[in-house]
Design a protein around this nucleic acid. Sequence first.
DNA 1: TCGCAATGACTACAACCGTAATCGTAATGT
DNA 2: ACATTACGATTACGGTTGTAGTCATTGCGA
Lengths: 123, 123
Amino acid sequence: MQTERISDAEFEVMNCLWQTSPLTASDIAGLVPQERQWSLQTVKTLLSRLVAKNVISHEVDGRRYLYSPLVSRSEYVSGESKRFVDRLFSGRAGPLFAHLAEREAFSEEDISDIEKLLREMKK
Amino acid sequence: MQTERISDAEFEVMNCLWQTSPLTASDIAGLVPQERQWSLQTVKTLLSRLVAKNVISHEVDGRRYLYSPLVSRSEYVSGESKRFVDRLFSGRAGPLFAHLAEREAFSEEDISDIEKLLREMKK
DNA sequence: TCGCAATGACTACAACCGTAATCGTAATGT
DNA sequence: ACATTACGATTACGGTTGTAGTCATTGCGA
């Protein structure tokens, strides 16, 4: 029973729920980024699909639902990261890093973050 | 005219073409990983879709086509990496790295690769 | 020469996705 | 009490994806 795939649009909804929960459908319609100006109905559809996929739960509150995540952001990010690194870099972080470096995808800040992490890992 | 999205199945076909090209449809049907035992027809459908998406080209050879990539693996990987890091880590490599570290996603080899790259970047 | 095999083109079809509209019901304001 | 509204459920609909089947043609082997 591995976790179901979450689509791009569903992911926006999850981001709201990961930030605050529980939330109603209308709450979420109000929170979703402006560039994706969804109708309330669209948000409700996404919520039902997420419930069907078993990644959020809904608790009855009067005649509304309060939605909460069942999967943490960190769990989700881990799964996606693994998929990504497996698919494009044969599961190895070294080549991923090399690729990002080659494309100059690192800021100064990224680099010092990484150096710090490496020092911590050494201990 | 940004590059079209490539689906998972299509990606397997691209991997064959990135390794060797040009190839015929039958070549590819023979090369594709065993776990995805596609019929020749399936491979042909994927090839037409890739042509329609403008990421491979086909050159006539008698009554067959010889297919070749129009997009390099490295270009593709860059695009996907950017999408991934933007979506899950707000475009910052530092947090990506931190997440991988936390999940113990690095092998010893990865770590020494990365250290080496960092030293080279310093110069 | 004649049938068959290989090949590309077109068609199929269910699941999933983005984006809603509509429907039935129940609470709410007046 | 009645109209309006807020909600969840159901339905819609075109596009993409995975996975092929079918069709028309044509070169090749016997």
